[in-house]
């Protein structure tokens, strides 16, 4: 499988009154063609900022300090704002967490989708309308003609999220960024939306970057997963490998901290709190919360090491059988 997106050493800082917030720090990962990559972590781990940075939607006081975002062979960080606008919405699209606030309240949902066809693909109004109905059908909305004439406030939360997904897919993007697309939806509706995303990914061949805090969602729909903590990726790899044998102490703590319906567990909260990203100390950002902390952890930032065919971990203490460190 080839890589659709290659992110190298992406670093995003926010210049606040309190000081420099190092929100995303040297993040490196790939999204392969046609795969669903999950990004998990606690609030404040930098998941959403990473997604916004990929689309160059970081606004002052935030800025991309360094790094490369190579998408279909082009480094997006080097593009002009005009060139970037041509990528946004057409090649890379985004689905946000609260669909109702992301939709325009004064336009019918049909009109909002139809405008995309008119703006991006030069479709006529009638053509746009026909294709809108087709999109609404694709995302599983019943009575699409009637729904197209309705406004966001007339639709349920699940229906709004389907409309958002229809909008995101209208221009056949190659990469879909989905930021907590099922948070706030009821379980059965959330299951429908996840099924829809997985199915659409398969049918359109688009890759999906799925941001979530729910390990269950990762296990059910993702092929690979990146675990983020305090602005850094601590472990990345195939979902099956990481769930079978999580190597980073943070991934292990995350797995132990959730109640689950499939087995009886003693839940253990993750020790400590997400560290402040205002001038974080050198070394591993998990050191203060880590039960296996070594002296070296507070001194040197751990480099990602290959641990299994498709698993990398950035930890000094993780037991990795003599695999070479990666630069």
């Amino acid at each position: 499988m080839t890589d659709l997106l290659e992110v190298r050493d992406l670093t995003v800082h926010f210049d606040t009154e309190a000081g420099l917030v190092e929100a995303v720090d040297g993040v490196t990962f790939n999204v392969r063609s046609g795969e669903i990559l999950g990004v998990v972590g606690e609030s404040g781990s930098g998941k959403s900022v990473t997604a916004l940075a990929l689309l160059r939607l970081i606004r002052p006081p935030g800025r991309i300090v360094q790094g490369a975002v190579r998408f279909e062979g082009t480094d997006l960080v080097g593009l002009s704002e005009d060139e970037m606008r041509a990528v946004r919405g057409t090649r890379i699209a985004m689905v946000f967490q609260s669909p109702r606030t992301a939709l325009n309240p004064v336009l019918t949902v049909g009109r909002q989708i139809s405008r995309l066809f008119e703006l991006h693909q030069g479709a006529s109004r009638a053509e746009g309308r026909t294709r809108t109905i087709g999109m609404l059908k694709l995302v599983g909305i019943s009575e699409p003609e009637r729904r197209a004439r309705q406004y966001a406030h007339q639709l349920s939360g699940g229906m709004c999220q389907r409309v958002m997904i229809a909008m995101a897919l209208a221009t056949s993007p190659r990469l879909l960024l989905a930021d907590e697309p099922t948070t706030g939806l009821d379980v059965s509706i959330a299951a429908q939306i996840l099924e829809l995303l997985r199915d659409l990914g398969r049918r359109t061949g688009a890759s999906i970057l799925l941001i979530t805090h729910d390990l269950g969602v990762v296990a059910e729909v993702c092929d690979r997963v990146a675990v983020m903590h305090a602005g850094q990726i601590v472990e990345v790899g195939a979902v099956r490998a990481i769930f079978a044998r999580p190597l980073h102490p943070y991934t292990q703590a995350l797995v132990r901290s959730i109640p689950r319906i499939d087995r009886d567990v003693t839940m253990e909260p993750i020790p400590g709190m997400v560290p402040s990203l205002l001038a974080p100390p050198p070394g591993c950002r998990y050191a203060d919360r880590c039960p296996r902390v070594l002296d070296v952890c507070r001194r040197d930032r751990p480099a990602p090491r290959a641990a299994a065919p498709d698993q990398e971990v950035a930890c000094h203490a993780a037991e990795v059988e003599d695999a070479p460190a990666r630069g």
């Binding site: 379980v187 390990l215 296990a219 729909v221 979902v239 797995v255």
Partner: peptide
Amino acid sequence: LLSAVPVPDPTVQRERLV
């Protein structure tokens, strides 16, 4: 409802009642 809850175990194959 139970079958819609995502389970954090990728090896589990579940029957869904939708």
